[in-house]
Each structure stands twice: as structure tokens, then as C-alpha cells.
Simulated scan of single mutants.
Amino acid sequence: MKRQGGFTLIELVVVIVILGILAVTAAPRFLNLQSDARESSLQGLKGAMAGAAGIVYGRAAIDGVEGVSSVTAASSATGIALTFGYPSATTDGIGNAVDGLGANDGDWIAVSGSGSTATPPVIHYSFSGSASDTTCFVSYETNASAGAPTITVTNTGC
């Protein structure tokens, strides 16, 4: 009589237990991917804001308005509200300077409670659909005097 080859029940159970242990130790590493992606998106937006602010400032310097404390979007050659040559901390300023920050773009949303009423003016952008988010956003703050804006990332609750 031929002897049949194959795995015994004990061998199969041992392999399943080993795979289970590996899955339990590896699962936490993959469960935090959404948080990492949000934090990376915030860093990307910060870079986009910094790049756009530099480009807009260069255009303002060419136009000779880099020393003016306030230029409205209507009178700006670029259609962007300016504060000392940099985009203002409003939706007409930095919101018009960066693609994806506009009201109809849908990628990012200005967090409620921010805007030009603060001193110095500051605006927060969070992910679309989370207008009340106060723990995962990018802040754009214009300088009260002639100088580059301050752009910070808050990612404590991403």
C-alpha cells in the first residue's frame, strides 16, 4: 500500500498560529497609514504655500508693490490680495495663490474662526469636509511688518 504524502493537522495548526502571531505584530504598523498620509498632505500644503508666497512676492517686487501694507485682489496684477508683497491671510490672498485652496476646488477648506480679524491676520486650512478641525491643519500668518509669512503645521490629531 502506498503511503500518502501531505501535511498533518498539527503542522497546519502550527503554521496558522505562526501566521497569526506575525499578523498581530505587523498590524499596528499598517493601521496608522491614514494618519501618516494626512500629516504628509499637510507638509505638502505647507510647501505649496511657501512656494506660492515666494513666486507672488517676486511678481509684487517686479510691480513695485512689495512695500505696500495692503493691496486688494481687484487692484493686484495677479488677482491675489497682498500684504507687503506676500499673499494675505485670506481666501482672496493665499487662497487664490495656491491651487486647491479655492472655494470650489474641494481639496482644502478654510477652518471656521480664522481669517483677517486676527492680529496679525492668520488663516487655517484643513481637509475638505472637516471645517471645525482644530487639531490637523496648516496655518498661514502674515507678518505685521514687511517680512515673509509664517506657515506652520498642526498635526496633533490627524
Rank of each mutant, 00 (worst) to 15 (best):
D63I: 04
L42M: 13
T25D: 05
D92M: 05
A23H: 02
G47Q: 14
T78G: 00
V17S: 14
L19V: 14
I80Q: 10
N32G: 11
S40F: 03
V111G: 03
S116L: 07
A52G: 10
L42G: 00
G44P: 03
I21K: 07
G20E: 03
W108K: 06
A89M: 04
L82H: 07
S88E: 12
G93S: 06
V65A: 12
L22Y: 04
T90G: 03
I21R: 08
L19K: 02
S35A: 15
G93W: 06
L31E: 01
G102K: 14
D107F: 08
S112R: 05
G102W: 12
P120A: 10
P87K: 06
I94P: 01
Q34F: 03
K46E: 14
A26L: 15
A110F: 01
G100R: 04
S112Y: 01
R29V: 10
I80D: 09
I18E: 10
N96R: 15
R38P: 01
F84W: 15
E66G: 07
G47R: 12
A26D: 09
T91W: 00
G79Y: 02
T91V: 03
A27G: 12
S41A: 14
K46N: 11
G47I: 02
K46I: 03
Q43K: 14
G44Y: 00
I109H: 00
E39R: 15
G93V: 08
L22I: 14
I109D: 08
D105T: 08
L33C: 00
G85H: 02
T78M: 13
T25C: 05
S70A: 13
A26N: 06
F84Y: 15
A50E: 14
A52M: 09
T72F: 08
G44A: 14
T90C: 04
D99F: 07
D63S: 13
V71K: 00
W108I: 10
A26W: 09
Y86D: 04
R59I: 13
V68L: 11
A27I: 11
I109Q: 12
T119S: 15
W108M: 11
G44L: 07
A77Y: 00
V71F: 09
K46F: 06
P120T: 07
V98L: 02
D99N: 12
A50K: 08
Y86W: 11
S114P: 02
Y57V: 00
A74M: 01
R59G: 01
D105S: 15
L22N: 03
A53N: 10
A23D: 03
L22Q: 07
N104F: 12
R29I: 12
D92V: 07
G20K: 06
A27Y: 15
P28W: 05
A77V: 10
S40W: 00
E66A: 15
I18Q: 10
T117I: 00
D107T: 13
G44M: 08
V17G: 11
P121T: 05
V15K: 05
L42K: 01
S35D: 14
S75F: 03
G67A: 13
N32Y: 03
T72N: 13
A60R: 10
T91D: 08
S75Y: 04
S69L: 04
G20M: 06
L101Y: 05
G100I: 09
S69T: 11
N96F: 10
A48V: 05
I62M: 08
E66T: 03
R29W: 04
A52Y: 07
M49V: 10
A27Q: 12
V98K: 01
Q34R: 13
I109A: 11
D36F: 06
V65W: 08
G95S: 06
